[in-house]
Design a protein around this nucleic acid. Structure first.
Lengths: 246, 246
DNA sequence: AACATTAATACCACTTAAATACCACGTCAA
DNA sequence: TTGACGTGGTATTTAAGTGGTATTAATGTT
């Protein structure tokens, strides 16, 4: 900043309103990358003081930027740059939340909700006694009515006595039962769609899909969830932000 | 400790919150190895007393470290260093490092190292002047002698005057030149291998590959690296650890 | 003249950083 | 076994900084 204020100063000739001039200059600055994603703009007061205009005028310029979706306001906190690529997913969040953030209307269709014998491998991973059973869930995930992913979860039956009782959000249901998934390991790889998945997700057989395998842990560090998700990546790009620790 | 407290003292200029300053200094100290794995940090009270700040402020700094997975808290007992092996890989790390961690012997073969005209899109993304050129790098990445990925990078020529001088590690080379990549956005999706990539990576045409697109930023938040990596996922699974923020 | 737009002033409501004071869990020695 | 002490956990408060809004005056348009 500092010397950059000069560039935001409005013209003397008031052919166009002050707030529009400012809005335009600010938009240019944002697109030029003066601030990074989620960084706060100077406050409305700072801007108005620095440019010798009223705060409401500065605010009105901000309104334009908000209307354009360039920035977002938080009462009592500041005005922040909207990330261009929308929300890097670095937190554990359900499918539903994630889609809402991206402006889609999420929904889902149950394909399977049943109690079953665990495979040998599942017995070991989930630490089940020989007699224990598992609950299997399978559903289509939709965004704006289009199938986006097929999701298949396996949990110890003891955590989900009644599979039919699960609403649209598995995580919300688990929360209610006191078994919140707090930490997860996600394993991402690419696979070619087989006949079953292709038919269910509406892609051609052989098309590349993301296969996300998730291991969900409770606060006690107990593995309670094994989930495979086949994602059509034209709808579900996975974005991660990485940092270097110097 | 003792004289080390001096190094943790916050700056007078309060441009950034105290707790963030402290968190950063502590993180540096931890990575520098001030404490051993599973060793306890000084207690929140000790830190706050020693640095003449409130305990809650010290505590808030600790919160940041916990969020980064560097330490772990035990009620009534203390705050302990997380062993490196359990720390989530949320750091930005080159291919080489990553493979070593997994016990492979990494190597690479150059396919292309040249100076070229940028495409229009690259001009905009990298903020290049009309006359500026870019350096293109393309190589096979091997693990134990087997091709694992094809990597194609584009950087502004100004950062890499002599492409031939790059050794095996691009990041190490950039570090030496003073243009460290500090932050990166990774975009992961699945694609079917086309003829070129299939031939280069030794898979059948149409096989599912991970396509990882990376945007690398310097500390000044300047985008200097565009990299596409096509990965055979039988060798390179992408693992991420996610946390829920309650 | 009547009206909408622009811009300024003054005051309200929310968020955050930081401090204080007190509560709850572990450890360990008596 | 127990209780004192050291550890982390949390509710509350204060001050400063942020956006939110009603009101008013000047200007331009019809």
């Amino acid at each position: 900043m500092d010397d950059r204020w000069q560039l935001l100063k409005p013209d003397e000739t008031r052919s166009t309103p002050l707030y529009l001039q400012l809005a335009q200059k600010l938009a240019t600055a944002i697109n030029a990358g003066w601030w990074r994603a989620d960084e706060a703009l100077p406050s409305e007061r700072t801007v108005s003081d620095e440019l010798c205009i009223s705060r409401v005028t500065a605010r009105k310029a901000f309104d334009v930027l908000i209307d354009q979706g360039l920035v977002r306001r938080r009462h009592g906190s500041g005005t922040f740059i909207t990330p261009r690529t929308e929300q890097p997913m670095s937190r554990l969040t359900g499918f539903t939340e994630l889609l809402r953030q991206r402006g889609f209307e999420p929904s889902s269709v149950w394909l399977e909700r049943l109690i079953d014998q665990p495979t040998h491998e599942e017995q070991i991973q989930l630490g089940l006694s020989p007699a224990a059973k598992v609950t299997r869930l399978k559903r289509q995930r939709l965004a704006d009515g289009v199938v986006m992913a097929i999701e298949q979860s396996t949990l110890p039956n003891s955590y989900l006595p009644d599979p039919q009782a699960i609403g649209s959000s598995l995580y919300a249901h688990l929360d209610q039962l006191g078994y919140s998934v707090v930490r997860a390991l996600q394993h991402i790889r690419a696979v070619n769609a087989n006949e079953e998945i292709a038919a269910l997700s509406g892609v051609r057989v052989g098309e590349a899909l993301l296969l996300i395998t998730r291991l969900g842990y409770t606060a006690d560090n107990v593995l309670i969830e094994l989930t495979d998700t086949w994602c059509r990546n034209d709808y579900y790009d996975f974005v991660a932000e990485l940092k270097r620790w110097t």
